[in-house]
Design a protein around this nucleic acid. Structure first.
Length: 444
RNA sequence: GGCCUCAUCGUCUAACGGUUAGGACACAGGCUUCUCAUGCCUGUAAUCGGAGUUCGAUUCUCCGUGAGGUCACCA
């Protein structure tokens, strides 16, 4: 299941989510960038499930992360749970204590239970920490006001900062790519790394994905999990393309790229520093662009999932029209009845609406009968052929006068797909049946 | 509030000292059209402010202002 895809591992990046809730799209953008950077340099991409908070981590959330990454097509070379490395963490913790760089402190638990716990605090050397961020340049912090921060709940219960530093080092992570909200954490982690004798990795802090109000995107601001987009019928290619373009751009005016192309072009230099708002309208547009890039087979497959009651024959013939009318496959569930329902269910036609503008009803009947006759000798193999046959007549007698009644008779709707497509999809038999039905209504 | 980070159309962005500041989304108008939807064309719209540096600043520096992030025995 876990496969090693790459021969050279000079660059190692990781995505380190915490399975304590459903991760939203913004969280996954970090994974996209880490993936892109690793693949760009034929490096290694690791998925590390950060479950040191055992109480809040669940298998369900972990599975969702794995599922989401798989759907997006972000393959990793290694996967593990941080909890599997607790021995390593404890070893490092002990080393720090032995060397006087950390100490055990007996303190009352913060949960108010009154229990006294032996937490481990890091002995802050109170120095200035300077690191060069790949995106932001030199960042300098005086760590004095951090105090002796807690690095473990107990010797066997490591906390975030310690676990991250030890794991990144042991896994040979060369580039820590994460959100800007981690900048304040970086000095602490560098301090721990130095105390352990590790040379810290490079850091690249990404600009945040923002909600409409310009604050960090979050679930309560309406951010959805990746799997929700999957279920709404979005294309992973579009999600990838769109998210990669929030805060990054290869330059130039082209906007639609495949994952492979993004890998080719990815580069820290072009990453923005400022946060960017997640714009779902543009995501819709981009999704539609990617739908257009899909093969007929792929689109048919995806459309079927949302229009299961339609026959393969209808779907196949109607596909271009269907794709034109939605920007995600999921939208089909909402519009299929009103837009396409008449294809599978013969409509009730209100003959008062079949007449074009001020035409006399006998004119409408004549046109309908004429079209009916034309259809008898028309080849139904292509829309174009049908159109030519009908238009030869309609051009002479007035397009509206002929086409409107035709379309109304076929669809029963004032607004619908054009009559030629309807004819093509319905076929001669059903089309003529509907036309003669309307003629019959007029004459009785 | 302390510390940190950031700043081009409403939004996503291009421009790495010299452009009528370009593109896309959205919006508005028009064309195509039997209707709807597509498609095509056009338009509205931005360099936060102030000092420098420079022959010349969106671009470099500083100061403001504004915005965001972060200050857990979460990650």
């Amino acid at each position: 299941m876990i496969e090693d895809l790459t021969p050279s591992h000079s660059i190692v990046t990781r995505f380190a989510p915490s399975p304590t809730g459903l991760l939203h799209l913004g969280n996954y953008r970090t994974a996209i960038f880490a993936y892109l950077y690793a693949r760009r340099h034929q490096g290694k991409f690791i998925l590390r499930i950060e479950d040191t908070d055992r109480a809040r981590s669940t298998k369900e959330y972990e599975d969702n992360i794995i599922e989401s990454l798989a759907w997006l097509g972000l393959s990793y070379d290694e996967r593990y749970r941080q909890s599997e490395h607790i021995e390593e963490h404890t070893k490092c913790l002990q080393k720090l204590i032995d060397e006087g760089k950390a100490y055990i402190s007996e303190e009352a638990a913060k949960d108010g239970s009154g229990v006294v716990k032996s937490i481990v605090r890091f002995k802050n050397p109170n120095k200035k920490v300077v690191f060069k961020d790949e995106i932001r340049g030199v960042i300098e912090t005086d760590t004095t006001d951090l105090g002796d921060f807690v690095i473990a709940k107990s010797i066997t219960e490591p906390l975030f900062h310690l676990a991250v530093v030890v794991d990144d080092h042991n896994e040979g992570v060369t580039h820590v790519i994460r959100g800007e909200d981690h900048i304040p954490n970086t000095p602490r982690q560098i301090l721990i790394a130095e105390a352990l004798g590790f040379s810290p990795p490079s850091y690249a802090h990404l600009p945040l994905v923002l909600s409409e109000d310009r604050t960090k995107l979050s679930k309560r601001k309406g951010a959805l999990p990746v799997t929700a987009y999957r279920d709404m019928g979005y294309l992973p290619e579009a999600i990838l393309n769109f998210m990669a373009f929030i805060g990054w751009n290869p330059g130039g005016e082209r906007e639609i790229y495949t994952l492979a192309e993004l890998v080719e072009l990815f580069d820290f230099e072009k990453i923005h520093k400022g946060g960017a708002i997640f714009n779902k309208e543009k995501l819709s547009w981009m999704n539609k662009e990617h739908m257009r890039l899909k093969t007929t087979e792929e689109n048919l497959h995806n459309v079927k999932k949302h229009m299961s009651e339609y026959s393969d024959d209808i779907l196949q013939k109607l596909l271009p029209t269907i794709i034109d009318r939605v920007s995600s496959y999921g939208e089909l569930s909402g519009i299929k009845d009103s837009e396409f329902g008449f294809f599978i269910k013969r409509p009730l036609v209100d003959i008062s609406k079949v007449i074009w503008k001020d035409d006399e009803s006998y004119i409408t009947i004549n046109h309908l009968e004429a079209v009916y006759d034309i259809l008898q000798n028309t080849n139904f193999d292509t829309i174009e052929g049908i159109k030519q046959a009908i238009m030869a007549y309609a051009e002479i007698h007035g397009k509206g006068s002929v086409l409107w009644p035709l379309r109304m008779s076929l669809s029963g709707q004032e607004k619908s797909v054009d009559p030629f497509t309807i004819l093509y999809v319905l076929g001669r038999e059903e089309s003529c049946a509907r036309i003669s039905e309307v003629i019959k209504q007029f004459t009785t």
